[in-house]
Nucleic acid binder design. Sequence first.
DNA 1: ATGGTGGAAAGTCCA
Length: 256
Amino acid sequence: MRVATWNVNSLRVRLPQLIRWLNESQTDVVCLQEIKMVDKQFPAKELADAGWPHLAWMGQPTYNGVAIVSRFPLENVQKGFEDGEEVDAQKRVIAATVHGVRIIGTYVPNGHRVGSDKFAYKLRWLDRFKRLIDRLDPKTDVLWCGDMNIAPDDVDVWDPFEWEGKVLCHPEERRRLQSIVDWGFVESFRERNPFASQFSWWDYRAMGFQRNHGVRIDHVYLTDSLNKRCSNVAIWRDVRGWEQPSDHVPVSVDLD
DNA sequence: ATGGTGGAAAGTCCA
């Protein structure tokens, strides 16, 4: 089973690319972020006709929005935190079980600038997500993927000196990510590529992709049982060079 | 250089 994550930056604009990429990559399940549409706009028929009929989505006007697109049935779909706390107006979490694997897709807040209200929201959001993970069992098959908006280490940034202490790299967000990982996750890409500097996002501005000014902020985390079943991790860099690309590329894992 | 480009949506907000 191939499972992936992709921040599409508008599913309306990127739908042809999504269907093309699903076919070329033969991906079975993909978690999407930034679909940027309300629920009634979701292209369920188009995706079903293309061969991915099992769908869950949670949109909002203009911003955010997450979805799961699958060849296989989705069970126990969860939309949002569903933790009894105040409902988050920003739609950033969706989960479902596929063939016994609990798949959680997230669009972690960007945080804008360190010290801003948005950065404080990002840290609160990560604390709340940690509590969601704490309610699960690390001995079960859990896959957490998405646009994490955090570069875990300096090697995940094109210029770590330029980025030091800034949003995506600040110690406070890295510490929170690590505390979630410490619950019982392995970061699938870094586990298999200890020293590789490969990126998943490049700024549209200032020729970011052409100059390879990128960061690796899209990740797939696996519990130990799933990590043992993982035979491959891929960052689909070429997709960034397609016509009218998202600023992010897909990241996939293969589970035997 | 607090810029730049792209997307939603119709003047800005967000990344």
